[in-house]
Amino acid sequence: MLTYILRRLLYMIPVMFIISILVFLTIQLPPGDPITKMIENQRLQQGRVFSEKDIEMMQARFGYGDPLPVQYTKWIGNIVLRGDFGYSFYKREEAGKVIADLMPLTIAISLGSFIFTWIVALPIGVLSAVRQYSIADYVFTFIGFIGLAIPNFLLALILLVLGLTTFHTSFTGLFSSAEIQQAPWSLAKVWDLLKHAWVPMVVIGTGGTAGLIRIMRANLLDELHKPYVETARAKGLSEMRLLVKYPLRHAMNPFVSGFAYLLPYLVAGEAIVAIVMNLPTEGPTLLNSLLNLDVYLGGGILLLISFMTLISTLLSDILLAWLDPRIRYGN
């Protein structure tokens, strides 16, 4: 098991390397040199003129003006060795600090929607499979299809409108006021967060939940008639214990490996829902940084999001190996 985890960890390194190159190329794609543009902006807006020395310093730090491979090496080297994500010209702050401020809430919201998705999808999927073609099955299947068909940004908009018109509360943001958002963490702040966070979590999780219900139902239906279930039934196990110990356990397999792909899906959904709901997470910041050619911030966020999803893939693989002895024995 340990060697398996180590192997998976080692295997992450080349993947992360490829992703970092992809991200670097992506942020280099827009026409125009971001640093020249930044120098120009600073001059126009604030009348601040960079001295030769400043520009030399920037060259040393970002490799500005160097060929692309050198720039890439400096960029990734700074991130890996020093945790230095570069400078956000748009926010006028260290990119690393901006990202560090955003990430905890981003992770919290993504995890929250993840948990929501599982808690809802698992029992409903099981119920739909065990009571196939029952009224409950039809109802949930139908709701699931509707959940899949509503774009989550639209769902977010509709909820925002409903909140304002019917409930007279605003679902935007994660906190009641800007003061609370700035305040240091306290019990009151967490409570305030929870009061607001459930809406985006539900919105982000809806599509994933619908998909997961269908996966669970299909998998369990496949397993319910396997010979090993018959063997267990012939032992005289009660239907409930039988279901939980045998077909459900087997059906969990694709379900768990599905979560490797669920997290990227949720993070992607989070990005767009956050923009609509104006959440203080990475989504809106990423969009703005990309629109403003704020390459180091944008690149850093893209890199971290990809890293997060790689970690989730790793976790799901480990969970799979722990669940399924066949994987542990490398069959």
């Binding site: 993947v15 992703i19 792909y261 990227p264 992607a268 959904g269 990005a271 989504g283 999001i305 999803t309």
Partner: peptide, 9 residues
Amino acid sequence: VLRAIPDIP
């Protein structure tokens, strides 16, 4: 690798 990258960003 492609599947690990969230699509919308």
